[in-house]
Design a protein around this nucleic acid. Sequence first.
DNA 1: ACCAATATAGGGGCAACCCCCTATATCAAA
DNA 2: TTTGATATAGGGGGTTGCCCCTATATTGGT
Lengths: 211, 211
Amino acid sequence: MINLMIVDDHALVRKGIILLLENYQDVKVVAESGDGHEAIKLVMKHEPDIVLLDISMPNGLDGFSTARQLMQSQPDIKVILLTMHDEEVYIRKAIQTGAHGYILKKSKGSDLYEAIYEVYHGRRFYKVHISDEQLEKMFREEKAPSSVLTMREQEIVRLTVLGYTNKEIAEKLNISIKTVENHKSNIMHKLDLHSKHELIQYGINNHYIKG
Amino acid sequence: MINLMIVDDHALVRKGIILLLENYQDVKVVAESGDGHEAIKLVMKHEPDIVLLDISMPNGLDGFSTARQLMQSQPDIKVILLTMHDEEVYIRKAIQTGAHGYILKKSKGSDLYEAIYEVYHGRRFYKVHISDEQLEKMFREEKAPSSVLTMREQEIVRLTVLGYTNKEIAEKLNISIKTVENHKSNIMHKLDLHSKHELIQYGINNHYIKG
DNA sequence: ACCAATATAGGGGCAACCCCCTATATCAAA
DNA sequence: TTTGATATAGGGGGTTGCCCCTATATTGGT
């Protein structure tokens, strides 16, 4: 019997998961919660094998942070992240966080069960749109992170996407326009982008704005 | 007996709704669908009283468009929009679309039932964070639309937010750079904006990108 | 102790942007 | 019918962005 806990701020989704899992007799939902803080307490009490964790949750404690805290306090626990976002940034963050599984909310019940089954038996389960090779690459890169943007560069991207001019960015960050230009240029090279709209669209797709 | 159809691209959410509504014997789910195109066909077949419609759906046919089409083909049908977004723009769009109800995914089962019950009996049901007075105002404003930007101007805003240069926009729309500049200038005056980032942020806040 | 990455800053030059004008054709409304 | 809104296009000029360089200080890793 696999003991499961569900954490999602939408009651609808929690109930949906329960209904989808009713067909699988070896899975039992022992607890459910609508926020990360409560989840951390409930894990102590119910000691589930696996926590199904929504990424987007309110009150400052999102799925990633909750996952990290859970895994620190209960090292044997397995975490499966559940999300709407089939995007590279989120997958990377899940890998960084050390999540055992990653599945999408649009998944069928069988995928959900498969994820639970595989993760319970110690295997990794990431069901995403990108290819296995790319995924492997991302896991490898996580051990040697290099290709990502630095904090400063991320800040530059964010402000650029929001439409600030180099001058305005320079003023906001108290640096020279030339430094801003250099950062931008470095970002373009790192990401192999060749035009302004590619940079903007990278920023939008990777949620440099809202969320 | 109220016949209900559920349209949401996430199976999880559909099942969750079904489970939450099991407590209410006067509601029956007669059909469910994962996309808008299929939903339109299913409505013909099952003739539900109310369609519960998720706003964010793929394949170009989101909840708003689906709602419009459904209400055109079946004028008696009631539509309740279901969404994660408790934001003014979405609420405005729902009002424009003529949705009978608007509830959030984080709602409890009782809210969901209340929405269905009220809408079935010909009343409007918008359960959102903003005050009733504001909501009334938005309904009133909808009858006297003074939607500022023209189609062409909206297109210019959209492409600008996405980071295209004036030159690129001109090429895309087969017009001169000068025309693009003029449009931009007119937009800035109309909206009383005074910098590029204000325009971009107007575009982002008013969902000129994704959604 | 050295090398790579990061963050900072500048020069020069060309392209693009932004803002001030003017100007035309169309179309709908007063 | 005249006016106003829309869509188109151009001239001129000042500002900014983008890209090619070079350069320095700091930090962390082999």
